[in-house]
Design a protein around this nucleic acid. Structure first.
Lengths: 353, 353
DNA sequence: TTGAAAGCGGTACCAC
DNA sequence: GTGGTACCGCTTTCAA
């Protein structure tokens, strides 16, 4: 691979001149410019971004740390950052971190070694303290999907509790007084906050959601199926279910219909996140939209700002409120339908692949 | 951000020694090593990967060019490359290219500027000739989802035609003699090959699929719905549909059921790709598995090989054959069911969101 | 076991 | 306008 020296030598000029041509610098004679350009083409010269980054002390990459690209949610997050990167003629450097503090630390470190100006970090395992000191070290580090009070101005997050409240209000407005919840214990914070907001809102209306109406399972489709089976087996009465996320909600619908409960006619189901699959399910899922792509873009922008030391002013960070997306899986409570018919219930021996 | 010089100065040693410590080089006194290590920690020293890349003439990044991270198919491709990158202590540098030759060219160029050793390229817009000369320039460049005879050894692709044949055999084995096809005109090659393989296999069995049984639409859910509506409106008889991809297949199922045709009891539907949503649909989609993640891993590995100049031997590249995934949307043709009842058909005025 | 020094491929300042 | 050159941070001989 040819270098700037090769170009200079062959074009019969100095490397300084070549550099000027490459960077569209001013004060280059037309003839010289043409000659150099031609040599660059002949040689297939491509400037070395590493050398450039070294001397200019700035990389043109934005780093992102996420657990897994395979999850459409995180893919969307990465995609949002990528959009901003492209808009600024930068590139995405991806660091995937398994769900462990050690791994997250390593992922961030790789980004720092590359001297990424801007870093968007999704971290669920690192402690607040560690994150705070990291933010201190890296001006352009922004936290996404997490809020830490001391460094709020560097956080972009979703109000999960408010999301729960919105879901509650939606179901209440449809006349649902007996509701069940499916949550998850396999993550921190998010499930708890969503559930808590939901309960609070029902409590405010004088309805207490007792533990018998709450099931916990793994946050995937199968988890939703299992939780729903348990809910049905408990013989508690309910006309709607608030589910932790869309995958679980789809599992819930599947089990409900297998057992003779039409969704939404007999039982309404509301999910959370509004991931791709929620639009493909039948019935299409009513859910709360998690604007992760938009949030990621905001985080990237913010990160760029901080890395340029522009934003020295302490803001309040960016809190997003999920938005209701009414599709087909929720409807008015129908008094004709008995929410739960014991004799109709049968265990559905589904096989999972 | 402190440099190797800072560490050397404060530790009272030369930068050469610090470098040795950083790289676990041999012949460093135990005391010196400890002292230097301590200073590195105190200073929060992180080696500069750009400087390293410059002097060692090798970057520790694998580049990937894809159209869009938001599409789970491409996310899975990127994820496969990322896995190999991690396995080799490297990182993923992502370059998204819009669907234009210009954009693909720019995306590749960014990767070359960064001196990526290995590049996995998904390109549908660049000409064979351009790709060939590019492969010539960049030893570690590997093409995925495309095969060019002259540089076959640098290609990793899927046998789409064979996929069509497999689908045909599956439907024939279930007794389906009257079949319809939904394809797409909005892409090159893939739809044509899949359809061609499918037809060939049916022809071989003495069944000709005529044009009235083939509909074209955009390769998404809505396209599948529209194509199916047209198929139904045509009043042609069929008991199964071979659909270009899973999203369209889900659209097809939706329209069929809305019009009173149970899937698979009345009409079987088979998709292609086996993307995430095919497992979440109801009924779960029978489809052909496109092992993109695995292929991407293979491509990354190959790329690494070539970039090390190990693989000078011309191989034959890697051709993958899609695998049948039987789920719920296909079943034996039921002679009791009249494949198509004209009087039952009604236009379904669906609204799309 | 350690240090001095020559680059890697650029940029940018200073002369001319 | 153009050229000379001092770095950027690090690796890697070669000597000591």
């Amino acid at each position: 691979m040819s270098t700037i020296k090769d170009v200079a030598r062959i074009a019969g000029v100095s490397i300084a001149t070549v550099s000027r041509v490459v960077n569209n610098g001013p004060k280059v004679g037309k003839k010289t410019r043409e000659k150099v350009t031609q040599v660059m083409i002949d040689l297939g010269y491509t400037p070395n971004a590493n050398a450039r980054a070294l001397v200019t002390q700035k990389s043109t990459t934005i780093g992102v740390v996420i657990p897994d690209l395979t999850d459409p949610f995180f893919a969307s997050l990465a995609s949002g950052v990528d959009k901003i990167a492209r808009d600024h003629n930068m590139q995405l450097l991806l660091s995937t971190a398994q769900q462990s503090a050690e791994s997250e630390r390593a992922a961030i470190n790789l980004l720092i070694e590359r001297r990424c100006q801007a870093i968007v970090l999704h971290s669920k395992k690192l402690s607040d303290a560690e994150l705070i000191s990291l933010c201190d070290k890296i001006p352009g580090l922004i936290l996404i999907d997490r809020v830490i009070e001391d460094i709020k101005d560097k956080c972009v997050w979703l109000d999960n509790e408010e999301g729960g409240k919105i879901a509650a209000r939606h179901l209440m407005s449809l006349g649902h007084k007996q509701v069940a919840c499916i949550s998850s214990k396999y993550q921190i914070e998010d499930p708890t906050l969503r559930l808590s907001g939901f309960s609070q809102e029902y409590n405010k209306a004088g309805i207490v959601i007792n533990d018998a109406h709450i099931e916990y399972a793994e946050p995937n489709q199968q988890g939703g199926e299992i939780a729903t089976q348990r809910l049905l087996a408990s013989k508690e009465a309910f006309s709607a279910i608030f589910v932790y996320n869309d995958a679980m909600a789809i599992g819930a619908i599947s089990t409900l219909e297998d057992n003779g409960y039409k969704v939404p006619q007999a039982i309404s189901v509301i999910g959370f996140d509004d991931v791709l699959i929620s639009r493909y399910s039948r019935p299409k899922l009513t859910t709360l939209h998690y604007p992760i792509n938009e949030m990621a873009q905001q985080a990237a922008l913010l990160s760029l700002d901080f890395s340029c030391k522009k934003s020295q002013l302490k803001g309040n960070g960016y809190k997003y409120i999920p938005r209701m997306v009414k599709r087909e899986s929720t409807t008015k409570r129908d008094n004709q339908v008995i929410p739960f018919q014991t004799d109709l219930y049968r265990i559905n021996q589904a096989t999972y692949d």
